[in-house]
Write a protein that binds this DNA or RNA. Structure first.
Length: 154
DNA sequence: CGTGCTGTACTGA
DNA sequence: TCAGTACAGCACG
């Protein structure tokens, strides 16, 4: 493990992220500085990806690798989640079905809430069937990201 | 409409 | 085990 961290602006505020140079994976990305590890860096491909995303290249994180989730359920859910195109949203129930667990909407909500890599794993694109749903850093944060991506109705 | 109950799948203690 | 979830659907009033 060879960790370093950095910060980057996003449409919803400053993001603090940790990167593992050994296996080229983004370990975490959060809207608060909790669990920061390693020395700071000012520039990197991750910094660049955020800059491009802010500029409107909404698919800038497609090439960013992340660690495998701890359980098969989470792997399936996060994989399906990253396939939601920018600018569109999916309900917790739809995402559950696409992940292979047709009635696990609530469990998907739990998995989203535990997501450690905001924006790159786009939990903000998962909404409730009757509204925007919740978000770990506040619904306003979620809405800012959706507006930036051009999702309709937010 | 809104509120509340219940089914459901997964997690962490 | 068991309680706790960033849900969904339906029954009531």
């Amino acid at each position: 493990m060879s960790l370093w961290h950095g910060t980057a602006k996003s449409p919803a505020g400053l993001v603090y992220f940790v990167f593992d140079e050994s296996d080229q994976q983004l370990i975490s990305a959060r809207f608060d500085p909790r669990d920061i590890e390693g020395p700071a860096r000012k520039s990197s491909p991750i910094h660049e990806a955020f800059a491009q995303y802010n500029d409107g290249a909404l698919d800038a994180f497609d090439g960013v690798d992340v660690p495998d989730a701890k359980s098969a359920f989470n792997v399936n859910v996060y994989t399906a989640m990253r396939q939601i195109p920018p600018g569109s949203v999916q309900t917790y129930g739809e995402l559950a079905a696409r992940s292979g667990y047709s009635r696990a909407a609530r469990a998907v909500g739990t998995a989203c809430g535990r997501n450690e890599i905001v924006i790159v794993i786009p939990c903000h694109r998962v909404v409730a069937s009757n509204g925007v749903g919740g978000y770990g850093y506040g619904v306003d944060t979620k809405v800012k990201l959706l507006v930036h991506e051009g999702a309709e109705g937010y």
